[in-house]
Design a protein around this nucleic acid. Structure first.
Lengths: 145, 145
DNA sequence: AATCTTTATTTGACTAGTCAATTGATCAAG
DNA sequence: CTTGATCAATTGACTAGTCAAATAAAGATT
């Protein structure tokens, strides 16, 4: 039996990279007392607030249940608030959340950037971006039908 | 403040792809009554058995605790066995595990392959593989030091 | 033989997520 | 009004993983 294809090898590389870079990222963010997943959510809220829970879930491709739990933790830690104004429940950052995002943002950006720049040229990065965009869009489309 | 870099955009694409393709994959594997993570582990064991728990953990870049829990579930479901021969604990597939791997393998391979081939040419796949290998190797190296 | 060190594995307390069933609230008729 | 339909959010029961502390099992040292 054929043990693998080019596609499956790509798959493994991408999966391992995601997992390993998450470990690295979490380790790095530890000093800011926040996790990579939490940062991702705070960042989205910061960019699009105010927004509803389902809009947020959609943006980060997470289930309704998943976002509910994540927001409970962030609310418990005082980073976000859920205000039930009129008929919709809006999510927004608290001052504490805003400050946290502000203080972490540039470091996280620099961290991600250096990890790529350490091993890929500008041209290679452009190519990788183009290819990953293609495949991610395709997967997203598949998922939606 | 600069909101992002090319590297951070790549990051988002890769992360979203991994998450979305895992959803797709799990959905597909549902009919085989197995998850993508379990398949990954069974596949590694099938390829390298017999091997110790820590060797396996190393191969899939998972923590010792993580592999312990995963193997407990796989053992509970009858897919693997842990035999304490002489002084080392060896992991291997049971007949049921072997059969499961055998029956799922080609489908999963075809699934992964088609998702890539649907949107990338052969040349693009080669390029993507080369670039992802570079960045994954780099991340792995970072992680190890 | 008895203790000490090392290395492998497990376990407790979490985060992060899934799916499916339930609960809640708003609106559109009957 | 009340009775459903609809859509949002929560919750229960899981999987999958982390880190750190606790155990286990050998092997080496005194």
């Amino acid at each position: 039996m054929k043990r693998n294809t080019l596609a499956s090898l790509i798959w493994v590389r991408i999966t391992r990279f995601t997992h390993q870079s998450a470990l690295l990222s979490n380790d790095f963010l530890k000093s800011f007392d926040i996790t990579a997943a939490q940062f991702d959510v705070l960042n989205q809220i910061g960019t699009y607030q105010p927004l509803s829970q389902s809009e947020l879930a959609e943006k980060i491709t997470i289930s309704a249940g998943g976002i509910s739990r994540m927001l409970s933790r962030l609310e418990r830690d005082g980073y976000i608030q859920r205000t039930s104004e009129w008929k919709t429940k809006w999510i927004s950052l608290t001052d504490k959340g805003e400050a946290k995002l502000e203080s972490v943002f540039e470091h996280q950006l620099a961290f991600q950037t250096s990890l790529m720049e350490d091993c890929l040229s500008r041209e290679e990065q452009k190519t990788l971006y183009k290819l990953m965009t293609k495949v991610q869009r395709h997967t997203e489309k598949e998922l939606g039908q």
